[in-house]
Design a protein around this nucleic acid. Structure first.
Length: 413
DNA sequence: TCTGGGGTCCTAGGACCC
DNA sequence: TCTGGGGTCCTAGGACCC
């Protein structure tokens, strides 16, 4: 039906196995081979070790349920700084093999391997094996690796054998992989789209790619046409190798259990979230063009207000009064709110601020070593700095300093 | 999975303009 | 001041991801 050469492109996908839980097991040998769950601070599982999965524990399960099913399970609070260190180390290893690496999320990355057989004098399978071994040996966690001709196919390949799998799918074997993949397991096809496709008797990824182009173009939107092409072995998604350093927006929010109505508490929490979001924006040298505080009711409806700031600003206290008004206009007496939060968007590079991000974050390493003395014993090399990111360059003219003009609008859904 | 927190991209439709 | 056709910009909301 469609012909693809063996290796027109070579994309590797690397995926940490139960990453958060594995990181704890790597730093605490007592937890090796034991059921471990992370996320105790939020009352639900964010990662589940493979030992814990045997008991039927899954992501999102509430901690009290976990304790009931598996009393010997260790439930630990998340530690994102620790995850980040392992993550950076993992990416550094990958970058030592290929310069074209995309850090997709904290525990996943893509790499372009095309043309690497000669310099390494290894097959693609051997390169994949070497990367996997190096990560596993130096970090004490396991990873699954998939290698195929597009990002979508590499991602399917890495999830094909887990944990600690290595799966190669050259162009002429795509159909075998797709035939064994249910449509909802395809990257980018969620609950709604798979339910829709089921109505056309499309159950596997193979059923999907066998649909004619006209079907995909008329019945589905652009992203799904791209997925269709990717699954057929045609490269659509590029490796995004500028390291992840820019943001479109930043969100900070918190859910109350139980929901509350208390105006003072809600306002205080909201203000904290606004300050947190701005603080992160400043770390990345952004000015903020729009602030959107929101409250979410118990039935999951959002009530959002929007403050436009021109010129954009770096500190929320400049518009504190306006924020207060915005809050007052959405808060209603007698309604219980489950979440208060804030999203800031329309971020612009701030050329006036100093470049201070290049300093090594020694404090963090010291803290980690204090909390996890086993790092030293295991001789894990934390050569890369935690915040080693570049500031986004921008040539826009510098805004003149004047008080921001505010406009407020509301919406709810 | 009775629902945490943090993201991205796309599309439809309204406003506004010539 | 009756009205066609076409463009751009913006926003809300949907869908999806980890």
């Amino acid at each position: 039906m469609f012909q693809v050469r063996s290796w027109p492109n070579v994309i590797l996908h690397l995926d940490g196995d139960a990453f958060f839980a594995s990181v704890f097991q790597a730093t605490n040998p007592r937890l090796k081979g034991q059921p471990v769950v992370t996320g105790s601070e939020r009352g639900l599982a964010t990662a589940v070790s493979y030992e814990a999965r045997k008991y039927g524990i899954h992501r999102g399960m509430l901690t009290w349920q976990i304790r009931k099913i598996c009393p010997q399970c260790t439930i630990i609070p998340s530690d994102y700084e620790l995850y980040s260190l392992f993550s950076q180390k993992m990416f550094t290893i990958l970058k030592s093999f290929s310069p074209a690496v995309e850090e997709y999320s904290i525990d996943e990355a893509f790499a372009d391997l095309k043309g690497l057989r000669q310099p390494f004098n290894m097959s693609y399978q051997e390169i994949g094996r070497a990367i996997k071994n190096k990560v596993e040996n130096s970090l004490g966690i396991t990873v699954s690796v998939g290698i195929s001709v597009t990002k979508s196919l590499a991602k399917l390949a890495s999830s094909f054998r887990k944990p600690s799998g290595l799966t190669l799918v050259p162009g002429h074997e795509i159909e075998i992989l797709l035939g064994k993949t249910v449509i909802s397991d395809v990257w980018g096809i969620g609950e709604n789209t798979s339910a829709y496709l089921q109505k056309f008797r499309i159950k596997t990824a193979l059923d999907f790619v066998r649909q004619p182009e006209s079907f995909v173009k008329t019945r589905l939107s652009k992203p799904f046409f791209e997925i269709w092409r990717e699954l057929r072995g045609e490269k659509v998604y590029e490796i995004n190798d500028r390291s992840k350093q820019s943001y479109k927006g930043i969100t900070r929010s918190q859910t109350f259990t139980p929901s509350i109505n208390n105006k003072n508490i809600l306002w205080a929490r909201l203000l904290n979230h606004i300050e947190d979001a701005f603080s992160q924006a400043r770390q990345f040298h952004y000015l903020v063009g729009k602030v959107c505080p929101f409250l979410k009711t118990q039935d999951f409806h959002y009530h959002v207000t929007e403050l436009k700031l021109s010129p954009p600003i770096a500190y929320p206290y400049l518009v504190r009064e306006e924020l207060r008004h915005a809050f007052e206009s959405v808060w209603k007496k007698g309604i219980l709110y489950r979440t208060a939060g804030c999203r800031i968007t329309d971020l612009q590079a701030d050329e006036t601020s100093q470049m201070t991000l290049f300093t090594t974050d020694n404090l963090l390493e010291k803290k980690i070593k204090k909390v996890y003395p086993l790092y030293e014993a295991k001789k894990i090399d934390f050569g890369t700095t935690f915040f080693d990111r570049k500031t986004v360059e921008d040539n826009k003219p510098k805004p003149k300093l004047k008080l921001p003009v505010i406009s407020i609008s509301h919406s709810s859904s």
